[in-house]
């Protein structure tokens, strides 16, 4: 029987949650025994090759490309998990949510104290995805099955969650892994 497949993506995140995945250290060898990776920055597969058992999403949706990827994940994954605070709540990128988009762009490309932009152009190529009106947590765009808090969630949290899901055990994390104060 072929191994179940796992896919991952980093949307509007900092890749810190992916780093945390790598923090499982030598257990990654065990993980490879359990699963194959499909679309993921880990193996650089760009598009889905088939149906996946689990999808891990880091980051919320800040632009239309994030939405496209997230919807694609929802269509291909049986279980979809929001990993980390940006995916579950918008996180740091969502700090722009109370500021109009135009002001954000002006600050980033024209008015910011460290900006050097003599041409005064705000990048606008159709290759560059359009920003959304605000940063959305993943569950406001698609249905999410599990939310994993943390910035980032620890390697142990990610590991235990994945192993439980892949071995059909209940996701029953000890208190130490989900408390953050």
């Amino acid at each position: 029987m072929s191994k179940p497949k796992v896919a991952t993506a980093s949307l509007a995140g900092c890749f810190g949650c992916h780093m945390s995945v790598l923090d499982i250290d030598e257990r990654i060898l065990k993980l490879i025994e359990l699963v194959d990776f499909d679309k993921s920055p880990v193996d650089d597969i760009k598009e889905f090759t088939g149906r996946c058992a689990v999808g891990l999403i880091e980051g919320g949706c800040a632009n239309e490309e994030n939405v496209r990827v997230l919807q694609d994940f929802r269509r291909h994954c049986d279980v979809l998990i929001s990993v980390g605070d940006c995916a579950t709540m918008g996180g740091i990128p969502a700090m722009r949510n109370n500021i109009p988009l135009k002001e954000c762009l002006d600050e980033a490309y024209l008015n910011g104290p460290t900006v050097y932009n003599p041409s005064g152009i705000i990048p606008n190529d159709k290759e560059i995805p359009l920003c959304l009106d605000k940063v959305y947590p993943c569950h406001e765009v698609v249905k999410i099955d599990y939310h994993m808090p943390g910035c980032p969630p620890s390697a142990d949290t990610i590991w235990q969650t994945l192993v439980a899901l892949l071995t059909n055990k209940p996701v029953d994390l000890p208190y130490e892994l989900i408390k953050y104060d």
């Binding site: 239309e64 919807q71 109009p100 009106d133 698609v142 249905k143």
Partner: peptide
């Protein structure tokens, strides 16, 4: 599996 309340048209209109 999509969230019916999410409206991509509304979300990108400003941009």
């Amino acid at each position: 599996g999509m969230q019916p309340t999410f409206d991509i048209r509304k979300a990108v209109k400003g941009a």
